[in-house]
C-alpha cells in the first residue's frame, strides 16, 4: 500500500518493531518470514532486516526509505536522516559504570580514565562535554569484562534493567542518555514520497502512543 522500503533492526528491537508494525496496520512480519528471504513484501511495504548499526547507513544512502533504529545507534553514528517519531519501545539508558569500591564509584573523577565501550564516538563526545580526560578502548562485546579484569577503570554502555551491571558488581556512576527506538527517514524519500512517509509516521506515532499507554497500565 505504502510502496516504501522499511529497514527492520535485527536483535533486541526486532520483536518490538514487528509488534508495532502490526499494531499500526503497516505490515505483519516475524522472525520466521525473514528466515526464508532477505527482502519481503507485506501489505505493499517492502521490508528488509539488517543489523541495528547498519540501519542509519541503509536509510542515509537511500537503499531503504525509512528504518527503525535505536537512539543509541543514532548517537554513535550520526547520519543525515530525518528522525520523525519516538516509537517508545526498546527503552535503555547509556550509563557510565565502575567497579564497586573503585575511586570513580566513590565519586572521584580525577586522574585520567580508561573507559571500555562499544560506543566510542558517544563516549568521546560525553567526556569532551564534561572536559574529562578519558582514554577510550573500543570493544565489541562483554564490555563488563574489561572492568572486571582491570583493563579499564569504567565501562560506557547501554543498560535496560541494570541486571548485568549488578551481576558483575558494577555500579552506575552517571547517566549519559536515554534511548528508545525511533523512526528514521531518508532525506529525499521524505520529499519524493512524502504522502506515504507521513502516513507511515502518523500510523506509527498513534500505535506507539497507545502501545506505551498499555504498557504503563
Amino acid at each position: 500500500m505504502s510502496g516504501l522500503r522499511l529497514a527492520m533492526p535485527a536483535g533486541a528491537l526486532f520483536d518490538g518493531a514487528c509488534e508495532l508494525l502490526a499494531a499500526a496496520g503497516v505490515a505483519r512480519v516475524s522472525e520466521a518470514v525473514f528466515a526464508r528471504a532477505l527482502m519481503i513484501e507485506d501489505n505493499g511495504t517492502t521490508l528488509i532486516k539488517v543489523r541495528p548499526t547498519d540501519i542509519p547507513v541503509y536509510v542515509e544512502m537511500g537503499a531503504a526509505d525509512c528504518g527503525i533504529a535505536g537512539k543509541d545507534v543514532l548517537w554513535e553514528s550520526p547520519r543525515e536522516c530525518y528522525e520523525l517519531v519516538d516509537l517508545r519501545f526498546g527503552s535503555c539508558r547509556m550509563v557510565l559504570a565502575a567497579p564497586e569500591g573503585s575511586p570513580l564509584a566513590r565519586g572521584d573523577w580525577s586522574g585520567s580514565l580508561r573507559v571500555a565501550t562499544k560506543y566510542p564516538e558517544s563516549a568521546r563526545r560525553y567526556f569532551a562535554g564534561l572536559s574529562v580526560t578519558a582514554e577510550i578502548i573500543r570493544l565489541h562485546g562483554s564490555i563488563e569484562l574489561a572492568a572486571i579484569t582491570g583493563m579499564a577503570d569504567a565501562v560506557f554502555d547501554i543498560t535496560a534493567t541494570g541486571t548485568t551491571l549488578r551481576a558483575n558488581r558494577l555500579v552506575e556512576v552517571a547517566e549519559a542518555g536515554r534511548s528508545t527506538a525511533r523512526l528514521v527517514v531518508n532525506h529525499a524519500a521524505l520529499k519524493t514520497k512524502s504522502d506515504a512517509v507521513n502516513a507511515l509516521a502518523a500510523a506509527l506515532r498513534l500505535a506507539a502512543a497507545s502501545h506505551s499507554d498499555e504498557g504503563a497500565a
Binding site: M61, N186, A189
Partner: peptide, 11 residues
C-alpha cells in the same frame, strides 16, 4: 531550494 529525483536518496 533543493531538487530531488525518485532515483536518488540524496538531493
Amino acid at each position: 531550494f533543493e531538487v530531488f529525483s525518485i532515483d536518488s536518496g540524496f538531493p
